[in-house]
Design a protein around this nucleic acid. Structure first.
Lengths: 194, 194
DNA sequence: ATTATTATGTAGACCGGTTGTTATAATTTA
DNA sequence: TAAATTATAACAACCGGTCTACATAATAAT
């Protein structure tokens, strides 16, 4: 019904995809207009603060989506480590061209955090949410809070870092290696907890 | 003497810094002109293929610089793990505003690898060179080639990943944590080698 | 040796195209 | 009818790239 919701949602969907794939500066409003099918007038009606506001809300939307996706996977396995391995397996299945509506804020974070505080904060919130999702799963499994937080950050580091090499080498091998190494590390940590 | 060398070098120095800090798309030729003090005519004389060529050569220059810097640190310690720890310590000392002439190709890699093959290859070469620098140090210490390669990639993952969170949170804590975790992992691997 | 010629860089105005943004008119919806 | 939304047109600012003019230096010709 309410067309405005569709328009705004379509705008956010398209923006979210393009910003994640191409970055903030490489993505023009004209491209968003064209690919979303929405007119320019609507863009500035729904996002009167222009590109920045659009990007912030696109990041927020992507964060929510990613959180739900992660949560869905994490509840499937009771054991935290198995659940995380499952998460990494799903992560591997993403295509390298990043034609999906998903996780990585790396590019946007690196691009914008030194030049736009609002965008930086949106990216930070995204990181925090995803880190918490993992940390909480570990805490539920009995990990102490600090160990869980650090492990979550570790996973974030390796996943995002491997993505860089994967994209650069056009290969998924780095992501596979990353998965093995993460599980190796977590199992080591788990042993040390008792 | 030969002014031309100074001009080209100045252009590459400035470009290298700006591209690494701001990324490819956010860095305009006009900014490079202004900050380098070189006129546009000189830019297109030394880099007839324009922005792309300038970026490629800037990455190559930065790669060489980073390799030399790494090599300098790595030879100071005989033990590979101690040397790597030293490297991570130096890495921590970098300022977050990235006002240095250094390592990270992450931003450029994420930005360009899906849209420009020449830039992607330059970034890939940068990664390979830095990975090799570390892997070779491990091999010299007796690590098997594959284990050394994988360990080098691991270090790359964690370092680059932690940089993302560091920049986003405006804190060096992620880098410190990353260092601890890397050393922890490497020591574990070392034990498993015998 | 002196002049002419070519090469090498420097310097910056200028181009068409695109950027993000704004203003206003037309249209739809309630 | 009134409000909400869409649709254009136009905006200044900037983009990367091209162009010509100019200075200097090396080389060739006489």
């Amino acid at each position: 019904m309410t067309k405005e919701r569709d328009t705004k949602e379509q705008l956010l969907f398209t923006s979210s995809k393009l910003f994640q794939k191409q970055g903030y500066h490489a993505t023009g409003l004209s491209q968003i207009i064209k690919e979303s099918g929405c007119p320019k007038g609507s863009l500035y009606y729904h996002f009167p603060n222009g590109k920045e506001q659009l990007a912030v809300e696109a990041i927020e939307r992507a964060t929510k989506m990613a959180q739900e996706e992660m949560s869905k996977v994490l509840v499937q396995e009771n054991d935290a480590l198995k659940a995380i391995d499952k998460l990494l397996e799903v992560n591997e299945s993403f295509e390298l061209d990043m034609e999906y509506d998903g996780v990585p804020v790396s590019l946007l974070a690196l691009e914008t955090s030194h030049m736009n505080e609002n965008l930086r904060l949106a990216c930070l919130e995204a990181c925090v949410v995803l880190l918490d999702e993992i940390a909480n799963k570990l805490i539920e499994s009995g990990w102490p809070k600090q160990a869980a937080d650090e492990a979550a950050q570790f996973i974030f580091f390796v996943v995002e870092g491997s993505l860089i090499l994967a994209v650069t080498s056009l290969s998924k091998e780095p992501m596979k290696l990353a998965r093995r190494q993460i599980m190796e590390y977590l199992n080591m940590k788990l042993k040390g907890l008792d």
